[in-house]
Amino acid sequence: MLKWFEETDRESPNIIYSRIRLVRNWTEYPFSGKLTEGQAREMVSRLEKGMRDFCLEEGRDYDFTMLEELSDLERRALRERRILNGTLASKKDPVGLILSRDERVSLVLNGDDHIRMQFIAPGMKLKELWKEADRADDFINGIFPYAYDRKYGFLTAYPTNVGTGLRASAVVHLPALSSGKKFSSLLGEMSRFGASVRGLYGEGNENYGSLYVVSNQKTLGVTEEEIAGLVEKVARQLAEQEQQVRDMALSSDRLGQEDEAYKSYGVLKYARRLTWKDAMIFLSRMMTGVSDGILKFDGPCPVFSIMLGIQKANLQRISQRPLSRAELDVARAGYIRAELPELSGI
């Protein structure tokens, strides 16, 4: 079965994926930080039993794992694939994970909050994802009463999530826009609408790959539809402005753009050693070339899937042993050579 990141979405260029995250707490227990180990174990097991019906109802294939049964490497690989965040990947308490085989849907039990649902899809699918999350949430709420207050809405361990408990986000590819002088003031403008934009893999010039995460700042006093709508609007606006800059570059210097795309493909296809930084720079240029129709393949070319795959934990997982820095660069180049499809029509 294909994972969500192996699929490509051609409908919304420069929007790589979108995600809905919802956190909820069960009235029967204090928040996760205050649970004893015994309580936490009991709660995770009760939640998991209750969720079995949800999984059946959904008709997807799900796997249940306790994070403590996973090796450190596997946890880090889950973090690289955006299933766990940094806190969860290193958390030592009993944490349950229900993960659909395509990795589009994940439920973390006893993370920062009792239940953390995540729905993810390639392209801009926030409206659809919210509908899916809303249905799942209703179903789960039918089994487990939620901590809820008339004033503050859904109660969460961190007050930054209180209210809707909803974080909507979209990852956009902005290589041309982000290299412009006005980029930081543009981001400032976006944050005035209540959206935050930050680098997926770092800040400023260090954000190799030029991928940016747009997400809502507020969770209280705005409806779920307003949140999803705001993030979608800002992400689409950034993606469109990016395209305008690129179209200008294409019409003024097409040869230059083609040269950059083909050179990047060439390096990635034939290099024997690649650092993460170099690989991300060339993959980002290739992503631009694919999106602008310069690089053509017979089938899809999921560049983002390769970006996820070249991270440290995944490469070590494939090699089934720890790798030194030099070995990692060799493994990375090998991974990319194997994953990159052949160009068509040259």
Partner: peptide, 13 residues
């Protein structure tokens, strides 16, 4: 949060 009262979905406990 820019607000102190919840809007949107309610719990169906």
């Amino acid at each position: 949060q820019g607000s102190d009262s919840h809007k949107g979905k309610t719990a169906k406990n």
